[in-house]
């Protein structure tokens, strides 16, 4: 912090993002985030189970509307998020650097985050054509299979890279019409939380994306067990967490997706299968003839 300066800078309060609003955690708890030298950067919210449940309620409420939004509109909103992030590029670079990321790496990660949003903005009205099918059944029926969003997706974002990892998991889920609750990186949460402000300014309807900060060890079981969550995407944890998540997920036959070894900076993280991961296939039959 500045000493004896002409002007004292205003520090930001990092809050969570639920239903298009920025509340503090209902629990009143916090986590101190320090820079490399141990100096305090910010106190972030240590979200509780109750925060998560509130976020799921918001996500469920927003789901039908978002799923019904046209693919064109979802693409434009994703594009809009990229525009907003581009405009605040310097802030995000500075935030990553403050957390210990080198200048070059910080710039690259922010650029990649912007470009990733553009990439999935472009997929919003195309993945359906790639993955759907008209099925040549033998009987006299018209039969087709389309993708539909799974619904509410709970995401444990990767710890590293904090911003790019979060963006890389949010973008394909919402491109496909899901709504979500994401737990931001535990080690680099600041830029992730600031990303909520970008979303807020990008015409993303309230509740479509909800972002919490907090401890995985505390929240992962609730992400996996909540009965109104359709799928859980987990980017952190070893075999033990995997077992925990899948065991709890079985209670409502939740779909589980693990993206543990993904290198989010690699070109391999650019593909529409990330969208397909949180889609159901629906097949419709209708007779031909009168």
């Amino acid at each position: 912090m500045a000493t004896a300066a002409d002007r004292v800078p205003v520090a930001k309060t990092y809050k969570i993002y639920i239903d298009g609003k920025f509340p503090r955690t209902e629990s009143g708890r916090y986590l101190a985030i320090n820079d490399k030298r141990g100096a305090l950067l910010a106190n972030v919210c240590r979200s509780s189970r109750k925060d998560f449940r509130n976020a799921v309620v918001a996500a469920r409420k927003a789901q039908p509307g978002w799923a019904k939004a046209s693919a064109y509109l979802r693409g434009q909103i994703l594009y809009r998020i990229a525009e907003m992030l581009e405009g605040r590029r310097e802030q995000f670079v500075a935030e990553l650097r403050a957390g210990g990321v080198t200048a070059k790496a910080a710039e690259q990660d922010v650029d990649r985050s912007i470009d990733r949003l553009i990439y999935f903005a472009g997929w919003a009205d195309k993945y359906q054509q790639v993955f759907s099918a008209v099925n040549p059944v033998s009987s006299s029926h018209f039969n087709f299979s389309v993708l539909e969003p799974m619904g509410v997706v709970a995401i444990i974002a990767p710890d590293e890279p904090g911003l790019l990892g979060l963006v890389s998991n949010i973008a394909p889920a919402i491109a496909g019409g899901n709504t979500l609750v994401a737990l931001a990186s535990e080690t680099e949460p600041l830029s992730a939380i600031s990303f909520a402000e970008v979303l807020h300014a990008s015409d993303v309807p309230a509740g479509v994306v909800n972002i919490l900060s907090g401890l995985k060890s505390e929240l992962i079981e609730h992400f996996a067990s909540h009965m109104d969550v359709n799928a859980v995407v987990c980017c952190e944890g070893g075999r033990k967490q995997r077992r925990q998540v899948q065991t709890l997920a079985a209670e409502n036959v939740k779909r589980t997706v693990f993206r543990i070894d993904t290198d989010w900076r690699d070109a391999g993280a650019l593909n529409p299968y990330l969208i397909r991961d949180t889609q159901e296939v629906k097949t419709t039959w209708h007779p031909i003839g009168v």
């Binding site: 099925n135 059944v137 039969n143 419709t284």
Partner: peptide, 13 residues
Amino acid sequence: WANTFNKFDPTSP
């Protein structure tokens, strides 16, 4: 199934 029910086919997921 619309205006039909319980139809199956190997090409149909």
